[in-house]
């Protein structure tokens, strides 16, 4: 997009908003504010129920802190690569944008893979979804987070394809930034989960 075209487009295509902020970005932040209540509810359910183990293993018996630390670190670093992608997109550097988006998606996939491994390991150790209140609430909370990461990965991959084919309507940098916001949000939720769920024993 040439500057002249954009300036021209700003007169016509993108009408001036009251606050001067982009509708999409405002919408995304509002959505993230709402998501706080969603994860808050799931985390509270877990906190209430983590000590209620009528059958099966206790939390501190099965958590593998070194393993989860590594996957947490992977997700944290994916936030760095995401922010680099956003920065490249602002520079209109499509190549690096795509590179960092792909790396972010791969790191995210590593995290989800780790979660799948963790779930199977826990299941083998006797913690099923229906085993105890701890099991139900643990799998629900981390599962919801995992689904959010997976949705993020799908969006990242779609974004890579769309950037490559120039098929993004409107500002490319903004689209990358919006998905970045979502991705970082998923990361900060995990920061909270990692502390509250894994590091603080029941």
């Amino acid at each position: 997009m040439a500057d002249t075209a954009l300036a021209h487009g700003a007169d016509h295509g993108a009408p001036h908003t009251t606050t001067g902020l982009s509708n999409n970005k405002l919408g995304m932040w509002i959505f993230l504010g709402s998501e706080c209540l969603l994860f808050g509810g799931l985390i509270s359910t877990y906190m209430l129920y983590k000590g209620r183990v009528s059958a099966g293993p206790q939390p501190d018996q099965i958590y593998d802190i070194p393993f989860t630390s590594v996957s947490s670190f992977v997700l944290l670093m994916s936030s760095l690569t995401m922010v680099l992608a956003v920065s490249a997109a602002h520079r209109r550097d499509d190549r690096n944008t795509n590179l960092w988006l792909t790396v972010t998606a791969l790191l995210g996939a590593t995290f989800v893979g780790g979660q799948v491994y963790e779930f199977t390991a826990f299941y083998r150790e006797g913690l099923g979804f229906t085993t105890s209140l701890f099991g139900s609430s643990f799998y629900t909370l981390t599962g919801f987070h995992g689904v959010h990461v997976t949705v993020g990965i799908i969006m990242l991959m779609a974004l890579v394809g769309m950037v490559r084919r120039n098929r993004i309507p409107g500002s490319k940098a903004e689209t990358v930034e919006l998905i970045g916001l979502y991705w970082h949000f998923v990361d900060i939720v995990w920061i909270v989960i990692f502390t509250l769920v894994y590091l603080i024993p029941s």
């Binding site: 040439a2 954009l6 120039n166 098929r167 993004i168 309507p169 409107g170």
Partner: peptide, 16 residues
């Protein structure tokens, strides 16, 4: 039509 100008004047048309 919105953003027709962008498609005409822009070096790299975005969107479909």
């Amino acid at each position: 039509r919105p953003s027709a100008e962008i498609a005409v004047a822009g070096a790299a048309p975005s969107g479909v």
